[in-house]
């Protein structure tokens, strides 16, 4: 049984935002337009948080890409009245759009605010719709959506491996954000495979979890930025 995880190397991440666009492109995430964005309805399953530290001239900007942390103890799951937000055997926090009735309770419970709500039916003025990824369902108004760890890629790779009668290798699965990242700051893989790159990185002394004290047992590991000696 696999256990999917992601490592984010904050010492490589430049904050460029390529992963954000890659996620939009891969997962049929709509753009909401200026008016709705101004009302706080912009949807970025993956957002690059930035925080200023200090003041001019000794000022610094810290970047931190934040997507669904795929918590093992996910607060968004028990509160969902319809099981639309639930845990899969491979440890993913799955979202069944068709089951979601839009209580938005899960999003309140999520300490990371990584769940985004469809306030309107998404629209892709023709022919923008031709870009939509057929492997990913388009969500309708009133449902909750969020980073899926590119589950379509996970399943696709597993099916391919099975068809080719071979074991899934580390690196067979790349999430869209990982693949797009110019600085190769993101590494996805199987945490149950001790040999995998992501396992190795997750054990790094630089490794930390976001809001570890909240007890959500995230499967995303942040490798802290180093400071120059």
């Amino acid at each position: 049984m696999h256990k999917w995880g992601l490592a984010v190397d904050l010492d490589r991440c430049t904050g460029c935002g390529s992963c954000v666009t890659a996620c939009h492109a891969e997962n049929n995430i709509p753009t909401v337009g200026p008016e709705q964005a101004g009302r706080g309805r912009a949807m970025h399953w993956l957002r690059v948080e930035r925080y200023w530290e200090g003041d001019f001239p000794d000022v610094q900007l810290k970047f931190r890409p934040v997507m669904c942390q795929q918590c093992d103890a996910a607060p968004c799951e028990p509160v969902c009245p319809t099981y639309a937000s639930h845990h899969t055997a491979e440890g993913l926090n799955a979202q069944v759009y068709n089951r979601c009735i839009g209580t938005r309770y899960c999003a309140n419970a999520c300490p990371y605010n990584t769940r985004y709500f469809d306030f309107f039916n998404p629209s892709w003025p023709k022919p923008l719709h031709l870009q939509l990824n057929p492997d990913v369902s388009v969500r309708e108004v009133g449902v909750m959506e969020k980073c899926t760890f590119c589950v379509q890629r996970i399943n696709g790779a597993q099916i391919e491996a099975k068809a080719a009668k071979r074991e899934l290798k580390d690196g067979d699965i790349k999430t869209a954000c990982q693949q797009g990242c110019p600085a190769q700051a993101l590494v996805f893989g199987d945490l149950n495979d001790p040999e995998s790159e992501v396992s190795r990185l997750s054990k790094s002394p630089r490794g930390t979890k976001l809001l570890e004290d909240v007890g959500t047992l995230p499967k995303v590991t942040y490798l802290q930025r180093q400071t120059q000696a």
């Binding site: 390529s18 003025p125 719709h129 990242c181």
Partner: peptide, 19 residues
């Protein structure tokens, strides 16, 4: 590119499909 793309490169597909 070494397998990566910047945000503008990722988005350039919308040039083709721009309404």
């Amino acid at each position: 590119s070494q397998g990566g793309l910047c945000a503008r490169g990722q988005a350039s597909i919308q040039i083709t499909y721009h309404p």
